[in-house]
């Protein structure tokens, strides 16, 4: 599988060239955020207030890493289950978020928002936290430090391996893949 190299922030053209099943190596800055951080970001959006990070063109990685051992940039850092972020994701996509990284499938409202506003959902390998950490070159907490493992971090990544699971055309690899490999 020849992987597509992409650098963040993502432009509409970057998103448009991606199709489900594409292997992608992500480079540049990505932000972390999971349940508690999403809840706070969502509440700010609802109130019409500014977010602590500018998400235009950005990618959010659903992860809560382990603490870094001495000499390491970050601990194990694999994806968490994405559907828990579904109630909040459409509002962030509408605000300009272009990519999400997680594991597991997404709900209809998120898929609709991805179609409408041209965004993409990448699947990373769940439970491969030690491997994925190798592609993270720096990590810095930029918001919500009080949330511990759920704080928002700014990561710089090099060749972070992901697979396009939902594209901006309504494609869904979870549905397509299951259809292709199921047997009765």
């Amino acid at each position: 599988m020849g992987a597509i190299k992409l650098t963040t922030p993502l432009k509409v053209e970057d998103v448009e060239r991606l199709k489900i099943g594409d292997a992608v190596l992500l480079n540049g800055v990505i932000y972390t955020g999971r349940d508690a951080a999403h809840k706070r970001l969502f509440e700010l959006l609802k109130k019409g207030e500014d977010l602590p990070i500018d998400i235009e063109g950005q990618v959010i990685y659903y992860v809560g890493p382990t603490p870094a051992k001495p000499g390491y940039v970050i601990g194990s850092a694999g994806p968490t289950t994405s559907y828990r972020m579904d109630p909040y994701a459409p509002a962030l996509i509408e605000r300009g978020l272009k990519g999400m990284i997680g594991k597991g499938n997404r709900g209809e409202e998120v898929k609709e928002a991805m179609r409408k506003h041209k965004a993409v959902y990448f699947a990373a390998t769940g439970g491969a936290g030690a491997l994925i950490a190798k592609s993270i070159k720096s990590s810095e907490i930029v918001a919500y430090e009080d949330l511990g493992p759920e704080a928002v971090r700014k990561l710089v990544v090099e060749n972070f391996p992901v697979i396009v699971a939902n594209d901006c055309y309504g494609g869904d690899l979870f549905e397509e893949g299951m259809k292709k490999y199921s047997k009765r």
Binding site: V63, T66, S76, P149
Partner: peptide, 8 residues
């Protein structure tokens, strides 16, 4: 000696 998954 790293956790195999971040969810320990």
């Amino acid at each position: 000696k790293l956790p195999m998954c971040q969810d320990t």
